[in-house]
């Protein structure tokens, strides 16, 4: 099937089998290998991307379902001039990654939550929901929480360290 995907602001025409998952089309057809496959059954969250602004598991969405949709991946998180997204800076500053394999998924889940809710910094339950939506085996999660809080505060304009 021929479909149109808008990924990180760029249009792509691809011809895919109906069974191909969005994650595989991003990685193999479009060469966007920043989206990782950690479990391929929707649990671990490494493959999380934004579809129409909402975080989804790209391993549980068929590419054909995304025909005409906009998709954002970790490659599209930074500004076009390369200036890192506040989440990227916060993840580094808080040591919220070690091996980095799960990281793109956490970044995109958090990016979706930040864009949906500018007041995320004041909603610890929502932040817990974001951090609790993926598996990380290296960090023990708390650094990821701190990074999301840090970026959310920066977005809100009251920069400061996570408690």
């Amino acid at each position: 099937m021929k479909i149109t995907l808008n990924v990180n602001g760029a249009g792509h025409f691809v011809d895919v089998e109906p069974r191909r998952l969005l994650a595989d089309v991003l990685r193999d057809d479009l060469g966007l290998t920043g989206t990782h496959l950690g479990c391929e059954h929707g649990v671990c969250g490494a493959c999380t991307v934004l579809m129409g602004g909402r975080p989804v598991r790209s391993c549980l969405v068929l590419a054909v379902q995304c025909d005409g949709s906009s998709v954002r991946t970790v490659e599209g998180l930074a500004e076009p001039d390369g200036e890192p997204h506040p989440l990227q800076r916060a993840f580094s500053a808080e040591h919220a990654l070690q091996c980095g394999f799960c990281t793109p998924g956490f970044l995109m889940a958090a990016a979706g939550a930040l864009e949906a809710d500018p007041g995320l910094a004041d909603d610890p339950e929502a932040i817990a929901g974001v951090v609790g939506s993926g598996i990380c085996r290296c960090t023990g999660y708390e650094p990821i929480r701190r990074a999301v809080v840090r970026a959310a505060r920066e977005q809100r304009g009251t920069a400061g360290r996570a408690p």
């Binding site: 969250g45 909402r54 975080p55 989804v56 889940a109 979706g112 939550a113 929901g129």
Partner: peptide
């Protein structure tokens, strides 16, 4: 609803 998986699953 908060018991159903987690946000990225609930958004689909």
């Amino acid at each position: 609803v908060v018991n159903i998986a987690h946000p990225p699953i609930r958004s689909r």
